[in-house]
Design a protein around this nucleic acid. Structure first.
Lengths: 68, 68
DNA sequence: ATAAAAAGTAAAATATGTTTTACTTTTTAT
DNA sequence: ATAAAAAGTAAAACATATTTTACTTTTTAT
């Protein structure tokens, strides 16, 4: 899963520390997610989308969907 | 976080076991999420939304957002 | 060129999500 | 009323997300 967090955060001129505070996690979490170390929880995904003024499905791009 | 999975699954007449198979998890995971035991991962949320033909933000309702 | 701010790395500890197995209860169809 | 299908409960094991702490590297502004 890719995401546009770094891009949209920069448009708003937020440093990672400020975005972290706005969504209620630590700076390490923002770094890890921006750099694709792991995916955020669903709840954090919603908070990030809200602060960055996009929908969840605009912020995250699922590249490998499950097909049965 | 609430969700409309049970409702939309029933509209499609899928038993839990079939939905589980379609999104690539076990039946227990579907049960737990439908009954609000915990939230799905972001990736599972996307797969559920895709199979149920709605957007992620239509399938899940965040009731307690974080405000700093 | 320097100092300060921002971003990144790493690893251990804790919290949350998912699977597996087995068994019970409820719903649906005959 | 019965059998079969679907839904639910529980708990242990395992996987993934988040925090905390400490330190390093890169970027920005003067």
């Amino acid at each position: 899963m890719r995401n546009r967090i770094k891009e949209l955060r920069k448009e708003k001129h937020y440093p990672q520390a400020q975005l972290a505070k706005l969504v209620g996690v630590t700076r390490q979490t923002i770094i890890a997610i921006e750099n694709d170390k792991y995916d955020p929880s669903l709840s954090l995904a919603f908070n990030l989308a809200r602060i960055l003024n996009v929908r969840v499905d605009e912020l995250f791009i699922q590249e490998e969907e499950y097909h049965d």
